[in-house]
Amino acid sequence: GGHPVTTQMVETVQNLAPNLHPEQIRYSLENTGSVEETVERYLRGDEFSFPP
């Protein structure tokens, strides 16, 4: 991942996926670069990993 992630982006995802840890959200956003894509992954039931 190398996309810039803002606190705003993390908070937006958190509102839609409250049971995800912020670190999981941030890591996913760094890989996708997209709030929409991260939320899609969540709704699909994809696994969210923590940063290594």
Score class of each variant (00 low, 15 high):
residue 1 G to R: 12
residue 1 G to M: 13
residue 1 G to S: 13
residue 1 G to H: 13
residue 2 G to T: 13
residue 2 G to P: 15
residue 2 G to L: 14
residue 3 H to N: 10
residue 3 H to S: 10
residue 3 H to P: 09
residue 3 H to A: 09
residue 3 H to K: 11
residue 4 P to T: 14
residue 4 P to H: 14
residue 4 P to F: 15
residue 4 P to A: 13
residue 5 V to S: 03
residue 7 T to I: 14
residue 7 T to F: 12
residue 8 Q to E: 14
residue 8 Q to F: 12
residue 8 Q to R: 11
residue 8 Q to K: 12
residue 9 M to V: 02
residue 9 M to L: 05
residue 9 M to C: 08
residue 9 M to H: 04
residue 9 M to N: 04
residue 10 V to T: 05
residue 10 V to D: 00
residue 10 V to C: 08
residue 10 V to P: 00
residue 11 E to C: 12
residue 11 E to I: 13
residue 11 E to S: 10
residue 11 E to Q: 13
residue 12 T to H: 14
residue 12 T to K: 13
residue 12 T to Y: 15
residue 13 V to L: 04
residue 13 V to F: 01
residue 14 Q to W: 10
residue 14 Q to L: 13
residue 14 Q to G: 07
residue 15 N to C: 14
residue 15 N to G: 12
residue 15 N to K: 15
residue 15 N to W: 13
residue 15 N to R: 15
residue 15 N to L: 15
residue 15 N to T: 12
residue 16 L to D: 03
residue 16 L to K: 08
residue 16 L to G: 03
residue 16 L to S: 08
residue 16 L to I: 14
residue 16 L to A: 09
residue 17 A to W: 05
residue 18 P to E: 05
residue 18 P to R: 07
residue 19 N to H: 11
residue 19 N to T: 12
residue 19 N to A: 10
residue 20 L to N: 01
residue 20 L to D: 01
residue 21 H to D: 10
residue 22 P to T: 09
residue 22 P to L: 10
residue 22 P to Y: 11
residue 22 P to V: 13
residue 23 E to H: 09
residue 23 E to G: 07
residue 23 E to Q: 10
residue 23 E to M: 12
residue 23 E to I: 09
residue 24 Q to G: 01
residue 24 Q to F: 02
residue 24 Q to C: 07
residue 24 Q to L: 05
residue 25 I to D: 00
residue 25 I to C: 04
residue 26 R to P: 02
residue 26 R to H: 07
residue 26 R to W: 11
residue 27 Y to W: 15
residue 28 S to N: 06
residue 28 S to T: 03
residue 29 L to G: 01
residue 29 L to H: 02
residue 30 E to H: 08
residue 30 E to M: 13
residue 30 E to D: 06
residue 31 N to Q: 15
residue 32 T to E: 03
residue 32 T to Y: 06
residue 32 T to F: 05
residue 32 T to C: 06
residue 33 G to K: 06
residue 33 G to R: 07
residue 33 G to T: 04
residue 33 G to M: 07
residue 33 G to H: 08
residue 33 G to E: 04
residue 34 S to W: 02
residue 34 S to H: 03
residue 34 S to T: 06
residue 35 V to L: 08
residue 35 V to C: 04
residue 35 V to R: 00
residue 35 V to S: 02
residue 36 E to V: 10
residue 36 E to M: 12
residue 36 E to K: 11
residue 36 E to N: 10
residue 36 E to Q: 13
residue 37 E to T: 09
residue 37 E to R: 09
residue 37 E to D: 09
residue 37 E to L: 13
residue 38 T to Y: 01
residue 38 T to V: 07
residue 38 T to H: 00
residue 38 T to Q: 00
residue 39 V to E: 02
residue 39 V to W: 09
residue 39 V to L: 14
residue 39 V to S: 05
residue 40 E to C: 15
residue 40 E to F: 15
residue 40 E to V: 12
residue 40 E to N: 15
residue 41 R to W: 05
residue 41 R to E: 03
residue 41 R to L: 09
residue 43 L to S: 06
residue 44 R to C: 05
residue 44 R to Y: 04
residue 44 R to H: 07
residue 44 R to I: 05
residue 45 G to D: 03
residue 45 G to S: 03
residue 45 G to A: 04
residue 45 G to E: 02
residue 45 G to W: 02
residue 46 D to F: 12
residue 47 E to M: 12
residue 47 E to I: 14
residue 47 E to V: 14
residue 47 E to F: 14
residue 47 E to N: 12
residue 48 F to V: 02
residue 48 F to C: 03
residue 49 S to T: 12
residue 49 S to Y: 12
residue 49 S to R: 12
residue 49 S to F: 13
residue 50 F to V: 04
residue 50 F to K: 02
residue 50 F to M: 08
residue 51 P to E: 04
residue 51 P to R: 06
residue 51 P to W: 04
residue 51 P to F: 06
residue 52 P to S: 09
residue 52 P to M: 09
